[in-house]
């Protein structure tokens, strides 16, 4: 298995087949990897690359080449879907990632339902699709991971989040209607990503944590809708990564119900232990992004080596990678994994 390509290695790891070693990836989206070091070196920069397909694919290639991550991961933010469905976005700067400036609806009752397919009709989502197509056509051996904002986070980017979270308890019927609408839009967009060459879809849902929702709401909203998206993506034969932020201890029984191929979690989760509790689902993670940003390269190398002994299926940053993370620190991480 010495000639295995990064694409095949990731595919095998995601499906639980034997590989020469675990791959090391960063799926883009919430985790991002368009770090300042790389952008300053290559001149392909954000925020421009959030909009233009050529710049986006160039920057994704720069990240791949300069960090050692074994994939392309785009887009570089979590705002494409919400912007397409009406919310205002501040596109940030070289250092600062885009953020939702203003959610379009004050409450779930105010939601206006656009026809399904609305996301991919926008220019920016179109650029993401086009960049996926260009990268996958040009680099056949490197997997393109299409990054999707999870259903609860996407809905909370359309509805004022304080009201939305309250309404999850108080206005269940309408909350379900809104999230289901968002999910149908996400499925349509994700399928187009896959049709254009995304080898994997990664769903990150930072609002849907056990700490925020608790087991009951996590089960009712997060598990249900993450599974609906996952099932739809599986129907077209594409594997799915699901990233859940924060402390997952109190939602472990619910995590076992997720249909994703791989579960990615935060740094303080003991993945070796979690792996024994997840049944069929594989694990991904979870090198501390704090260590990656502020640690020394040799500490990172050693910690990454330690992680490779834990039977984790896919190595990755544990959560959102800061744009200020030094490229030599990421290189220490990826080198340690590749050395096995």
């Amino acid at each position: 298995m010495t000639d295995i390509s990064p694409k095949e290695r990731l595919d095998r790891a995601l499906l639980g087949k034997p590989t020469d070693r675990a791959p090391v990836v960063c799926p883009g989206g919430m985790m991002n990897a368009a770090i300042v070091d790389v952008m300053n070196k290559t001149g392909h920069t954000l925020p421009e690359a959030h909009h233009d397909a050529d710049k986006m694919s160039d920057l994704a290639f720069d990240v791949y080449e300069n960090t050692g991550f074994e994939n392309f991961g785009i887009p570089f933010c979590m705002t494409v879907e919400a912007e397409a469905l009406g919310s205002a976005v501040d596109f940030g700067s070289l250092e600062c990632e885009p953020k939702i400036q203003k959610e379009i609806f004050p409450s779930v009752h105010d939601a206006v339902y656009l026809p399904i397919g609305a996301i991919e009709k926008t220019l920016r989502a179109g650029s993401v699709i086009q960049a996926i197509h260009m990268l996958s056509a040009k680099h056949l051996d490197v997997p393109v991971i299409g990054s999707l904002t999870g259903p609860i986070s996407a809905a909370a980017s359309l509805i004022d989040p304080m009201t939305f979270l309250k309404q999850l308890r108080r206005e269940k019927e309408t909350s379900h209607k809104v999230i289901d609408y968002v999910v149908n839009q996400l499925i349509s967009y994700a399928k187009l990503m896959a049709d254009n060459g995304a080898a994997v879809i990664s769903i990150a849902d930072p609002t849907a944590t056990g700490e925020i929702l608790g087991p009951k709401f996590f089960d009712e909203y997060a598990v249900c809708y993450l599974n609906k998206i996952t099932d739809a993506i599986h129907e077209i034969g594409v594997p799915v990564i699901i990233h859940i932020c924060g402390d997952v201890r109190m939602v472990k029984p619910q995590l076992q119900k997720l249909h994703g191929d791989v579960l990615s979690v935060d740094a303080f989760v003991e993945l070796k232990q979690l792996k024994t509790e997840l049944g069929e689902m594989r694990t991904m993670g979870n090198l501390s992004t704090y260590l990656l940003e502020f640690g020394k390269a040799d500490e990172i190398f050693n910690q990454a080596k330690h992680l490779t002994t834990k039977g984790i299926d896919v190595l990755a940053p544990a959560c959102g990678l800061s744009t200020s993370t030094p490229s030599e620190n990421i290189a220490a991480f990826t080198t340690a994994v590749k050395e096995g």
Binding site: K166, L168, R169, R170, E211, L213, G214, F217
Partner: peptide
Amino acid sequence: KSEYFIPDLLDCAA
């Protein structure tokens, strides 16, 4: 005590 979560807090506060 992890008996209530954010949706509960916000509902009670409202």
